[in-house]
């Protein structure tokens, strides 16, 4: 109880709560996104304080970095490209009227009731949980020799509950398929050009990001890191390339992109099914090949995650521009 960092923890908890409230309260959408990014960074710090560096890395890379970029891109899209927000909001940084369209009171009350129910449920679950119970640490530690890797988190994610992880990859695949379907009718929206300084920055940092992402993936077998963190960092390569206009998506790249999207899910499912037989069930890797198989799955899933996140940032699928400036949607 006399941890000298308790004051820091209290301040951190207060800051996270205050940031969460500020994100909801602030009217300007750009400010809300910036606050959300800061909120994510503080959450990552909180995960570090809770001795969960894997979650901290994932929160910083995916929850803050990639999500922040996606939100900013979306804001740019609705402000300047489709004009969904209307001219007024696009020109002025803050909307002229504080509430553009009043939300009906029953909707507000229904939302409040549902949020209250969720909070109540969480409180009941928290209070009903066994105090300072052993958790699953001992179980995982016992099973570690059978996992093929040295890092407990990787063992849980890629071996003990690999089915959940496969479903997480499927969610990403479903997301990118949906975006490519519903964005078919929208205008092509390349990211705004950022100029020569950013291109120099891109040339300087891209090699380092590639090394860092690969390192996170490789290190995942024995230390915090892994496919999702490495994939998110490698997705940043795609984001920087797109923003610096060093890579411009072409319609002819669509087949390659589609293969990259399904590569992770397909390889994961194929390995899970191919190891069956001889008394083993799906996902039960033979021990002598477990590390190889896990690293293979992680590497391919990383490629898929990176390409999928970068494609989500670009938005719609690349379409051919006709000579007259129109689009060829075939």
């Amino acid at each position: 109880m006399t941890d000298p960092l308790i004051l820091f923890d209290l301040l951190l908890a207060l800051a996270i709560t205050a940031l969460a409230m500020a994100v909801m309260a602030v009217r300007d959408m750009f400010a809300a996104i910036v606050l959300f990014i800061i909120f994510g960074l503080f959450s990552a710090l909180a995960w570090v304080r809770l001795s969960a560096p894997d979650v901290a890395l994932a929160e910083a890379a995916i929850g803050t970095g990639v999500t922040g970029a996606l939100l900013l891109k979306t804001l740019h899209h609705i402000r300047h490209v489709t004009g969904t927000l209307g001219r007024q909001d696009a020109v002025s940084q803050t909307p002229a009227s504080p509430v553009p369209m009043p939300v009906p009171m029953p909707v507000i009350w229904a939302n409040a009731a549902f949020c209250g129910l969720i909070t109540l449920g969480l409180a009941v679950a928290f209070l009903g949980a066994p105090q300072a119970g052993p958790g699953f640490d001992a179980l995982v530690a016992d099973a570690m020799p059978a996992s093929g890797v040295d890092h407990p988190v990787t063992a849980v994610l890629l071996n003990f509950r690999a089915y959940d992880t496969l479903m997480e990859v499927v969610v990403l695949l479903a997301a990118v398929i949906t975006v490519w379907q519903i964005e078919r009718g929208l205008s092509d929206a390349p990211a705004p050009a950022l100029g020569e300084v950013f291109q120099g920055f891109a040339r300087l940092t891209l090699p380092a990001i590639v090394v860092l992402g690969t390192y996170l993936l490789w290190k995942g077998a024995e230390a915090p890191g892994g496919a999702f963190q490495g994939g998110a960092v490698l997705a940043a390569v795609g984001l920087v390339l797109l923003l610096a206009r060093l890579y411009v998506p072409q319609p002819s790249h669509r087949p390659v992109a589609r293969w990259a999207f399904v590569l992770g899910t397909g390889a994961f499912a194929a390995v899970a099914l191919l190891v069956t037989g001889g008394g083993r069930v799906a996902f039960q890797y033979p021990l002598e090949h477990a590390k190889t198989l896990i690293l293979l799955i992680e590497a391919l899933v990383t490629i898929s995650i990176a390409v999928t996140l970068a494609a989500l940032f670009h938005g719609r699928e690349p379409v051919a521009l006709r000579v007259d400036g129109g689009r060829d949607d075939t």
Binding site: L194, G195, V197, F198, F201, L204, T205
Partner: peptide, 13 residues
């Protein structure tokens, strides 16, 4: 090094 480069670049942007 990378924070300094990123900070200078975003400042410029």
């Amino acid at each position: 090094f990378f924070v300094a480069v990123a900070s200078a670049t975003s400042g410029h942007l």
